[in-house]
Simulated scan of single mutants.
Amino acid sequence: MNFFSLGSMVPQATVLTLVDMPGYGYRSRLQWGKFITDYLGGRKRLRSVYLLIDANVGELKQTDEQCIDMMNSLQLPFRIVLTKVDKIRNTDAVVAKVTQLVQDRASFFVPPVLPVSAVLKYELAELRLNILIACGIVKPPY
């Protein structure tokens, strides 16, 4: 796991830390081990988990399903970030399909699915705002 301190975003705010768990998609839940389950389940100040799903796949992989099941069992709110949308033709259709698949499986999913592209810088500002709202640093605009 990699920890990134994002500093204090507003005066008197707690330091925001982003934790990256690279490679979870290449391993099964058993290989993640008890450490990650304990880490996620034991973080009282954890505000949300963002599960990154490759838009090229267009559906949930087994490891995505395992992660979603773990979020449900730990009762952790989580959001879906659909990455690499610059590589697909019909972003709206893939977002709708992934949304439906996740909603059918998950109790703690917080919509909407967030489509992004690092290459095109597509919707990155929306993702950043979503993170700040999830952390309670910024109030929702609605």
Rank of each mutant, 00 (worst) to 15 (best):
R43Q: 10
V110W: 00
D86G: 13
P140K: 14
G7C: 05
S28L: 12
P141A: 12
V49R: 01
K139I: 05
M21H: 04
R79K: 08
S117P: 12
I131T: 05
S5T: 06
L30R: 10
K34W: 09
Q100C: 05
K34S: 13
F108I: 02
G136Q: 10
V57T: 09
V113R: 03
D54V: 02
Y26D: 09
D54C: 03
G7Q: 13
Q66W: 07
K34C: 11
S48C: 15
V98R: 01
V49G: 05
V98Y: 03
Q103A: 09
L127N: 03
Q75I: 11
L16S: 12
I88H: 10
I131V: 14
A93E: 11
M1H: 08
V110R: 00
Q31P: 02
L40C: 10
N2K: 14
S73T: 14
V10F: 12
V49D: 01
N72R: 05
R128K: 14
V85K: 01
D86S: 11
G25A: 14
V15S: 15
P22Y: 08
M9A: 15
D69F: 06
L120Q: 13
V85W: 00
E59H: 02
A55W: 06
V94R: 06
D104L: 14
A106V: 06
E59I: 00
V138F: 11
R105V: 00
L51Y: 00
E126G: 04
A125G: 03
E59T: 00
A125R: 12
S8R: 13
Y24N: 04
L82I: 05
S48I: 05
L40G: 09
A55Y: 06
G25R: 09
L6S: 15
I68Q: 03
P115V: 08
D20N: 10
L101S: 06
I36Q: 07
P111T: 09
L101C: 03
L16C: 08
C67S: 08
T99R: 13
I53G: 02
P140Q: 13
I137F: 12
E123K: 15
A93Q: 08
L6M: 15
L114N: 02
M71G: 04
R47N: 09
L60G: 00
G41A: 15
I68Y: 01
V119C: 04
S5R: 10
G23I: 13
E59G: 07
R128N: 11
K121C: 11
L114S: 01
L74E: 08
S73W: 12
G7I: 04
L16F: 09
G33V: 15
I36T: 08
I53R: 00
Q66P: 05
K87N: 14
Q12N: 12
I137C: 10
Y39R: 11
N72G: 09
P112W: 04
K87L: 15
L16H: 08
C67Y: 02
Y50G: 01
Q62W: 00
D69V: 01
A13R: 06
P112F: 03
R29I: 09
N90C: 11
R27H: 13
